[in-house]
Design a protein around this nucleic acid. Sequence first.
DNA 1: GATGAATGAGGCTTCATTCAT
DNA 2: TATGAATGAAGCCTCATTCAT
Lengths: 217, 217, 217, 217
Amino acid sequence: MTDVNVEQPGGSGSHRAATMPVTERGRRTRAQLVDAARVVFEERGYLDARIGDITARADVAHGTFYTYFDSKQELFREVMSALVVDFRRIAAEVPIRGDRPIDRIERANRGYLRAYGAHARMMGMLENAALLDDEVREVRLEARRHWVGRAEYTFRRWQDDGVIARDIDVHYAANLLGSMVDRFAFVWLVLGEPFDEEESVRSMTRLYGRALGIDGA
Amino acid sequence: MTDVNVEQPGGSGSHRAATMPVTERGRRTRAQLVDAARVVFEERGYLDARIGDITARADVAHGTFYTYFDSKQELFREVMSALVVDFRRIAAEVPIRGDRPIDRIERANRGYLRAYGAHARMMGMLENAALLDDEVREVRLEARRHWVGRAEYTFRRWQDDGVIARDIDVHYAANLLGSMVDRFAFVWLVLGEPFDEEESVRSMTRLYGRALGIDGA
Amino acid sequence: MTDVNVEQPGGSGSHRAATMPVTERGRRTRAQLVDAARVVFEERGYLDARIGDITARADVAHGTFYTYFDSKQELFREVMSALVVDFRRIAAEVPIRGDRPIDRIERANRGYLRAYGAHARMMGMLENAALLDDEVREVRLEARRHWVGRAEYTFRRWQDDGVIARDIDVHYAANLLGSMVDRFAFVWLVLGEPFDEEESVRSMTRLYGRALGIDGA
Amino acid sequence: MTDVNVEQPGGSGSHRAATMPVTERGRRTRAQLVDAARVVFEERGYLDARIGDITARADVAHGTFYTYFDSKQELFREVMSALVVDFRRIAAEVPIRGDRPIDRIERANRGYLRAYGAHARMMGMLENAALLDDEVREVRLEARRHWVGRAEYTFRRWQDDGVIARDIDVHYAANLLGSMVDRFAFVWLVLGEPFDEEESVRSMTRLYGRALGIDGA
DNA sequence: GATGAATGAGGCTTCATTCAT
DNA sequence: TATGAATGAAGCCTCATTCAT
């Protein structure tokens, strides 16, 4: 599989090394490039995005790109990392409806779908690039571990509290239910299979809760 | 998103139109190309696979490729279609343990994981290419609809039989639970997160069954 | 120092690999490229020679270059190897004036200067490139060893025959006198210091012979 | 042949003209750049040395380079000129063993080889750059003329004194024997052919002396 | 003087596809 | 059918030099 890392040189040479800006002007230019990249990647996809597209939109010379980034991949990784951060922000904004476990589940599901929908195009690219670039894969897996880890932690506490059964393997459960939510979001929002948000959240939450044996599901 | 079809140059008329071989020799050559492609795609991935790699491995001249295929995509689609067929074959080979609904679920889950594992590399590429090529996406979605459709059909019958509750939206349920299985397989077998087959099948089947409210889960 | 070899990839990939032509047409095209390269290198020098210059002069498409060569260096090395061969041919054409040792020396010297003069521009480039590319350096050193080795062999025989003194270290002598001839040719024919062929051969041969203690010098 | 001057873009008028520093601070900065350049040129060679490498090592901003030099060539020429001066200094340090002509020859030869060895890398670059840049070529030829001129002058005096034969053309002799020494040094110390200093000096001096018909050789 | 960011022309290389035997 | 050579558009990246603080 394509692994762009391979292209990285030895390290004995000079290689110009992209650096972080020191001046205000530099910070501005770099930010322009990142912003432009976000748009261009969305519009054209990773593979079809040209450095020239990005610099043109950022309104800087072609060469300026290389003042801040060594390659398209590097910039892409940065955009992806930022995406993951923003994803969490959006998900966190969804209000919770009650204080029962099932309410928390619903909120988490809705938050995930909302965030996914807000960045559907980019999430598709993230899934994709995770298979092409090892560093992006790490970003993707890290994001997954974040969600799965949170769920696992919660499940464990619920188990301690008697909310869910003892015989459930919380590690597998978190991974499996996380997969359900994540993949459903992808199929719906990236692949475009037609679903309805309300019904999605309702069914998803109900199955999720029942699978864990939670009351009210 | 990148659609490789876009890359097609000229118009849609004057294409030498790849045809199915008439002679025995032709059939052999074509088969060699398909076999070679399978190997090359696995080894290098879709994007990095070169026509030259394929013809070299098939031991035919570079130009011969175009006697049978119009493009790399076309061959890839064929390989992917064959993959989907073989996937079902493998899944179907898994024996069923009993005749309760939960046994059917377990068998389906184990079959899916087994088939996925047998073609993990290719499944990863299929996921990937589905985002790069509209026709591959169709292949992928068609495969998904097959599994989801079967599940939905079964759920409906179970609903009629009183095995699962009336208030479950079988369409959403099939999609959600299918997503769970499918994505879990991907994370485990393609991305490489460590899981154990037995425990995977057990947890997966239990959650699946409980989500539907099936006895014995 | 620039060493173009460094750029050579690992070897695990495909890398298209320039191949020798199989058909007559291919042979012709390849020869056109080599011929064109010779001219272009002479006209513009190695560094300023563009692949495009070469293909343009060879009257083939830009990409055709890469059908036969992996890089400019590779073609350059081939041209340089051919140069060395032609150099010997020209040097060998110079007639010998008598059968005394000093006649052989004169003939060798004149031959060397003639051959050098016939390819002055290229010899300059060879000297130069030998410092930039390890493989070219090998070509250069091999050519040097050829001449020095021949001289050393002859000196040894002369020593056995009592033509030159026993106390001469023939290895050093061959290297030193070879250096004299080689460098003088370079200074005269490449750097352009003004000298006259007849006087050059006369002085060179006389010093060469006397240094070895040969009669008639 | 490649002449790096050609690369100069615009015209010859509006150049910010690099000036000699007026302040102490300026003198220091300039010296840092020259020192850094010496190191960088040795390490990476002329062609691969980047302005950025030099300023980085000199610990000044990239732009500062142009406060003192108009181009890489200009700095290189300065370094080369300094090299030639130091070369003579080292050669002059070698003590003379006696007062016969052959002693002077030996001293000159040993001095040349010593100096060459002390700056082998740079001498190789000087040879190289002499073919790439007309001004460097002038530096190189000037250095050569210095040594050859001195030899020629000495030979003439020796001729007047009856030390060497009348029939020797001292101009050609000086050039030829100078070539011998110079080229031998290059082959040994730059190209790396294995020789021994003592034997080199002995053989070289003996051949040199005999070629001129000097007693004691 | 010093700084570090911006510029942009220029060349190499790739490889899917076409074409003449 | 098979062959293998030819095509050429397309894009990445370099880095000397200039410029605004």
